[in-house]
């Protein structure tokens, strides 16, 4: 079980635990729907493996690995 979003494999899903990012990034992630309890799914990755595309609240958002690691997963 991955502990944060960056560790979530392609095609797997999880529940958002907490946002450990600060400031502007925290604000933006939460505005996009990465809030505690939200369901998230990793859909596919860029050719280099980073960034990755995540399904959150019925939209697809691309995040760099360094930023995805600031979203912890529940459970």
């Amino acid at each position: 079980m991955a502990s944060n979003l960056a560790g979530l494999g392609v095609s797997s899903g999880a529940i958002v635990g907490d946002i450990t990012a600060f400031g502007e990034l925290r604000r933006r992630l939460m505005d996009l729907g990465f809030t505690p309890g939200a369901a998230v799914r990793c859909l596919f990755a860029a050719p280099s493996g980073d960034p990755r595309a995540y399904m959150i609240r019925d939209s697809v958002i691309a995040l760099r690995g360094s930023d995805a690691s600031l979203v912890t997963l529940a459970g």
């Binding site: 990012a21 990034l25 933006r28 992630l29 996009l32 960034p51 595309a53 939209s59 697809v60 958002i61 691309a62 995040l63 760099r64 360094s66 930023d67």
Partner: peptide, 11 residues
Amino acid sequence: QASSPTLELPP
């Protein structure tokens, strides 16, 4: 430092 862009991929 490179910032943290969030890019939406539309359908």
